[in-house]
Design a protein around this nucleic acid. Sequence first.
RNA 1: AAUGCAAACUGUUCUAUCGCCGUUCCGAUCUUGCAUUGGGAAGGAGGAAAGUCCGGGCAACUUAGAGCAUCUCGCUUCCUAACGGGAAGGGGUUUAGGAUUGAAAACCUGAGCCACGGAAAGUGCCACAGAAAAUAUACCGCCUCGAUUUAUCGGGGUAAGGGUGAAAACGUGAGGUAAGAGCUCACGAGCUUUGCCAGUGAUGGCAAGGUUGGUAAACCCCGGGAGUUGAAAGACCAAAUAGGCUAACGCAUGUAGGGCUGCUCGUCCGAUGUUAGUGGGUAGGUCGUUAGAGGUAAGUGGCAACGCUUACAGUAGAUUAAUGAUAGAAGUCUUGAUUUAUCAGGAAACAGAACCCGGCUUAUAGGUUUGCAUUUUUA
RNA 2: GGCCCUGUAGUUCAACGGAUAGAAUAGAAGUUUCCUAAACUUUAGAUAGCAGUUCGAUUCUGCUCGGGGCUA
Length: 150
Amino acid sequence: MPLAPGAVHAVKSRVDHNQKMNKFYKEERLCSKKSLDLLFKKGSSFLLYPYRATFVFDAQPHKFPAQVVINVAKKRYKHAHDRNLIKRRTREAYRLQKQAGLYELLPSKNELLLLGLQYVGKEIYPYAFLEKRLAQLFKKLLTQINNEDN
RNA sequence: AAUGCAAACUGUUCUAUCGCCGUUCCGAUCUUGCAUUGGGAAGGAGGAAAGUCCGGGCAACUUAGAGCAUCUCGCUUCCUAACGGGAAGGGGUUUAGGAUUGAAAACCUGAGCCACGGAAAGUGCCACAGAAAAUAUACCGCCUCGAUUUAUCGGGGUAAGGGUGAAAACGUGAGGUAAGAGCUCACGAGCUUUGCCAGUGAUGGCAAGGUUGGUAAACCCCGGGAGUUGAAAGACCAAAUAGGCUAACGCAUGUAGGGCUGCUCGUCCGAUGUUAGUGGGUAGGUCGUUAGAGGUAAGUGGCAACGCUUACAGUAGAUUAAUGAUAGAAGUCUUGAUUUAUCAGGAAACAGAACCCGGCUUAUAGGUUUGCAUUUUUA
RNA sequence: GGCCCUGUAGUUCAACGGAUAGAAUAGAAGUUUCCUAAACUUUAGAUAGCAGUUCGAUUCUGCUCGGGGCUA
């Protein structure tokens, strides 16, 4: 779909702006109980250690192409500060990579991507490791989405 | 000085970039709404935020009344909103030292510990061993009487001795006796009643009388306390409606039945009809929700816990749940090298608010202070 | 977040405050059989941890650590 040169420029500049800022809004998080039920009942999932990703597309009004929920099981990590640490590191990695790694590469659909990240690792890993793994996870997610479409 | 133990206090700091969550200010947009969006300012986990072991505030339940039952607490006085918490005191107990002695105990000093009402209201239990575990039912022993086969049997008395046990009828000495026994006396230990003295009191001292196994974290007795349920309590907003609910009238001897804590009393509601009103579940939002039995500092009363007065600052408030990531610097501890202050590397615990407080308990690297013990050195 | 219950052999359950903590089943060894099963004989294996009360604790009390339930 051809666009006017001015419009293309405008979109690009806005994308550049967002990349620089790397905000993480409330609308990018998955909070609705109904959406959560939908995700874990109908969503398809795959494993990429130390994460287990679940995703599904849903036709809802939205501002951003995806909503994410990060989950660390209480059974696996008994102490609240351990769970907090993992969630914070994961969220930080997601925040910094989502724009370049996920949003721009998603097929242009009108549906909203609901994404669940469950931490299944047995140890608490440093931030650099989690960052690398999340990048791999995005790639695998995109190939799976494209396969489903085909 | 080092090490260990216990208690108390403390619980790394700064800069840059990118973010997150409330509050507040300024602007932009149109759907004029505490709407969306951009930017700025100031703020954003703990001493235990934990365990949920106690006590409150707060809220609702048809006021929540009485008695019994049930649960719970238990030296005294004080502190506190209250407590099973804290402070001071009393008593007990363990231990170290001193003094005394033939040796102990009693005595003096210090330290640690104590869920510390009642065993003299009653009941139960005290395995094995032992004669006997509580009304002394006598194995050995001691004394005595009888029988005779002259060293044995039987009857009676005896709890001093033996041995048993976690514990043996209060301990030592003397009198006494057939032999013995708190049977009597002296001294001593514990408990208890009465009187006097000291103390607010627990209790202590003296005198007289009585008494002498343990166990109440066994039942129990005495005295005090407890209504139940917990913010997922509860209040409100908008959407859509019943079988629910409320009020008035009617009906019945306020009946059947039901609620109020397990029971009794007591008390409240109360079947079916008509009219009017309200609007459950479910999903969402607002309040409750952070100014509080609060914090810091100074003064002051008190041995202390703590109280009183004044001043100051405004200091988390989320709800799939914020307080983070990266880089650098400083300080602390530590390892190695050079060398006696530099270089390189490593470590930093326990742990994360969810209605709010006061305690208790448990976890805790490193640092500081105090006390005790041990070792070494010096005088 | 709040409120509760519970902890005994590998498993399912017993046990007045007083044996060497008992039974079934599972495990191991043996007998029997050509072999296996069944049967019989023998054997090993446990009170969640730390304190306290008591002469003595699986039992009573406190704290800690596990496991489970109810509540939107």
